[in-house]
């Protein structure tokens, strides 16, 4: 049987340069490639998770120039010239980011699948508003689904991180 290419068009690629966790990355990517695939497959940054792939659940949240973004629904080329921060770009085990430390203290996770996205969304919130109220936290974080239902602990972790950060 002769091989066909039925229905599969050769993808156009586009040159892209962006900063990921402080490092510059450049290369050619297919125009339809989403940021999630760029991060997970090309850069091996698997801390960002794939879940609903429709910008509903928040598991794939990363920061693009400081703004929480669903990487599953964000085309990679749109990040050209921008700065992307993923969970790998936060703290280390010896020196965790305050929000990571607060998630550990309050156990703001169970299965952990949504946690990277929760932490990046929380990070985005605190960058934007250093002392959010309970309502502001709930409103901002309602784009990140946690099926294990850790919301109370996540909210407590965010309040705690915000207090400690302000205290400096």
């Amino acid at each position: 049987m002769e091989a066909s290419s039925e229905g599969i068009a050769t993808l156009e690629t586009v040159a892209l340069q962006l900063t990921v966790n402080g490092r510059v990355w450049s290369g050619d990517v297919p125009v339809e490639e989403v940021l999630l695939d760029l991060l997970r497959r090309r850069l091996g940054l698997t801390g960002t998770k794939r879940s609903c792939e429709s910008q509903v659940c928040g598991a794939c949240t990363v920061l693009v120039d400081g703004a929480p973004t669903s990487s599953c629904s964000h085309l990679a080329f749109e990040t050209n010239g921008k700065s992307v921060t993923t969970i790998e770009g936060l703290g280390s085990e010896d020196s965790p980011d305050p929000i990571q430390a607060a998630f550990i203290r309050h156990m703001g996770f169970q299965c952990g699948y949504c946690t990277s996205g929760q932490i990046m969304a929380a990070k985005g919130l605190l960058l934007h508003n250093s002392s959010p109220s309970q309502e502001e936290i709930a409103d901002w974080m309602s784009g990140n689904i946690c099926r294990c239902g850790c919301y109370a602990a996540i909210a407590a972790a965010i309040r705690d991180a915000s207090t400690r950060t302000r205290r400096g």
Binding site: L45, G47, K49, R50, E88, Q100, F103, I104, G112
Partner: peptide
């Protein structure tokens, strides 16, 4: 003590099958 999987889960380094 925090759960033993804490750092893995807050750092994205806990490995799920797709990772």
């Amino acid at each position: 003590a925090p759960r033993i999987d804490s750092w893995g889960k807050v750092s994205g380094s806990a490995t799920f099958v797709e990772d």
